[in-house]
């Protein structure tokens, strides 16, 4: 289409927009009426193109629209405090951050727990040392409560600390079994200082792996303890070691029964009492 005819078409379309009749418009352009007629008829068809819609479709759309609005409005009313926290992205971020903090906390706690000295008791045992007194008559009572093992049927002396390491700790410990065989075994270790009234210091019991104990006989007297045969000792060892000893510890038990009472209490692990018999 040349520019002249295009200009005439534009004028005709303007006239149609103003509402003039088609024949009246074409009369103004008699020379080009034949070319302009199909174009203007197409434009008329466009204007009258039946793009109708049923009342039902409009009502359906309107109902859905208003229903969505009602849901949005209800959601606004129920919006909690700190609404920024409830946005999906922030919510996911918050949960992720909380998880990271929890994991880091668990790791730190585990590290802290590993760095603690080994004199800590097993989780199920309690230790009370009220003997931090200055008087020579002070008695230290170490009470080990275990809910997992039977009451020891024998008594042994407390571990004898090495003299080089603990020169001031000259107290002897007496392990007194309380009760013959109750299920809630309670072992009372009474330490009676026999030397200078120095403040009793608690010396961490050396690990068997750190300082191998000499096969010395027990230095403490077993107060009302029944006389025990070596077989009995081994049996009793097994009772004490059931919960807390590992295989390696049990190998030492054969030689160092006295030491392992306290030492092995500190080692947590599954009960391996059957391994100690040999």
């Amino acid at each position: 289409m040349d520019a002249v005819l295009e200009g005439k078409l534009i004028d005709c379309l303007d006239a149609l927009e103003r509402g003039e009749a088609l024949e009246e418009i074409l009369r103004r352009y008699p020379d080009d009426a034949a070319a302009l007629r199909p174009l203007l008829e197409t434009a008329q068809q466009l204007a009258t193109l039946p793009i109708g819609y049923s009342v039902n479709s409009q009502r359906r759309s309107r109902n859905a629209f208003l229903q969505q609005a009602a849901q949005l409005r209800d959601g606004q009313r129920r919006r909690p405090f700190f609404p920024w926290l409830w946005r999906p992205q922030l919510n996911a971020s918050f949960v992720a951050a909380a998880l990271v903090v929890m994991i880091m906390g668990a790791l730190l706690f585990t590290l802290w727990d590993d760095l603690q000295p080994d004199e800590t008791l097993a989780p199920n045992e309690t230790m009370t040392v009220p003997a931090l007194m200055e008087t020579p008559s002070a008695t230290s009572t170490v009470e080990a409560m275990s809910t997992q093992q039977e009451t020891p049927t024998w008594t042994e002396s407390a571990p004898t600390p090495e003299p080089q390491e603990t020169p001031t700790s000259l107290s002897t410990a007496t392990v007194t079994p309380t009760g013959t065989n109750p299920p809630t075994g309670t072992t009372t270790v009474t330490a009676t200082p026999t030397s200078t009234p120095t403040r009793p210091t608690y010396t961490p019991t050396p690990r068997p792996s750190d300082t191998p104990q000499p096969p010395s006989p027990p230095t403490a007297t077993s107060a009302p303890a029944p006389t025990s045969t070596p077989d009995d000792d081994n049996d009793n060892d097994n009772d004490n070691d059931n919960d807390n000893d590992n295989d390696n510890d049990n190998d030492n038990d054969n030689d160092n029964d006295n030491d392992n009472d306290n030492v092995n209490d500190n080692n947590s692990g599954p009960g391996n009492g059957n391994d100690n018999d040999d």
Binding site: I51, Y53, R62, L66, A70, R73, Q76
Partner: peptide
């Protein structure tokens, strides 16, 4: 403010023109 009356008025005013405009661009009613 999600006022139902205002939203209904907007919908009724623009549904027809919007539908016609879109129907010009897609051939399926």
């Amino acid at each position: 403010e999600l006022d139902q009356g205002a939203l209904a008025e907007i919908h009724d005013a623009y549904y027809g023109p919007l539908l016609r405009y879109i129907a010009f661009r897609v051939s399926d009613q």
